[in-house]
Design a protein around this nucleic acid. Structure first.
Lengths: 195, 195
DNA sequence: TGTACATCAGTGAACGCGCGTTCACTGATGTAC
DNA sequence: TGTACATCAGTGAACGCGCGTTCACTGATGTAC
């Protein structure tokens, strides 16, 4: 358990990922270089090459962990909440936003094209698992609304996902900082309850 | 009119902006440097300094033009369309997406924090004018739905903007390439018409 | 219309910097016997 | 338990590269008279 001050690091891979996340959130993607990551992990600048062939590989490894945490954030948000479709969708959207607020630069990295190696199977799987949450959560609302065709259900999924994603982007880009609540779709779609 | 092969360029500022846009869309923001912009405009690498003190200033000037075109894209889309609230909102969302599809890298630059000089009044004004479109377009739908309070109307604006923005991001990031139609909010919110 | 001169826009060489990558190396670890 | 040796992980110097920035310069333009 105790930290060994050894020549070999012990868990440099994890330490590099943690350092990369720190730099990413503190200074932005532009400032994230292999040399800085190595320096922050207190290791020579050539050391990362033993673990990641290049920056893209490191970012991809970081994004895999990130998508897992992203899915967790939504799952956790759903757990503490009533099981009716409206509450569940609100909770998932809250989880979506909470993750983006906690890691805005990471959130952008996960979605921005060209930064990650999407031929990586683990990344594809982790991302798909995240998005699956939104599909699952939309199904009960689709049923409650009486949507019959698959096209209608997909249209609703698209709306739910787009609005959660769009709000997270607008919020973290500073366009809606006065309002930290994602749009509440269910409120518009379901008949009002008596007060 | 004829291109003079003179020592002085004539309109280097505009040429630099055009070159920057080309590099941005072809190679991405990471690859956009002052030296490359100068080279693409066929000018020495020190020439841009007479027009832009640094890259951020150039990007800000580019974004100002971009927001103006962005507003135009929405205005144009609205013109060719029926005046009922649902059609107008659909058209604005289509314009939003069309702009993002035509200039995906520019679209991200316009919204991504930290890249632009938001203390620039012209930029603030151009951006605000774009967003105003969405507010204007939402008002008639809010009325048709019988939303009374300002909070309700703002909630609808938030939903309309978030879903258009989110879909544009998801689409241009390759997450929805099978489906190039923004989510149709009005379809869910208004009573179905007879077929 | 012509000349002198100030101003402006672009040139090209030079600089220092941080970057990714390579390479011979060395200390630590694990394994075979 | 002890020794020899292969493998692995991190070191530190070196490289070439593209970057932003500076600077003395020069050619083009505009204006005063």
């Amino acid at each position: 358990m105790a930290r060994k001050a050894s020549y070999h690091h012990g868990n440099l891979r994890a330490a590099l990922l943690a350092a990369a996340l720190g730099i990413l959130e503190a200074e932005g993607l532009q400032a994230l270089t292999l040399r800085k990551v190595a320096a922050k992990a207190r290791v020579s600048h050539a050391a990362p090459a033993h673990h990641f062939p290049n920056l893209k590989a490191l970012l991809t490894a970081l994004a895999i962990i990130a998508f897992q945490r992203f899915a967790d954030a939504m799952a956790t948000a759903r757990k503490g909440v009533k099981k009716d479709p409206a509450s569940q969708i609100r909770a998932a959207a809250d989880g979506y936003l909470a993750f983006a607020r906690a890691n805005p630069a990471l959130f952008r990295l996960m979605f921005q094209e060209g930064q990650l190696d999407w031929s990586n199977a683990e990344l594809k799987q982790a991302a798909a698992a995240s998005f699956q949450h939104l599909v699952e959560i939309t199904a009960p609302l689709a049923e409650q609304l009486g949507l019959k065709t698959q096209a209608e259900r997909q249209e609703l999924e698209k709306l739910v996902w787009s609005s959660a994603h769009g709000f997270a982007h607008l919020y973290t880009d500073g366009k809606m900082q006065h309002d930290a609540t994602p749009p509440d779709i269910a409120r518009f779609l379901l008949p009002r309850k008596a007060k």
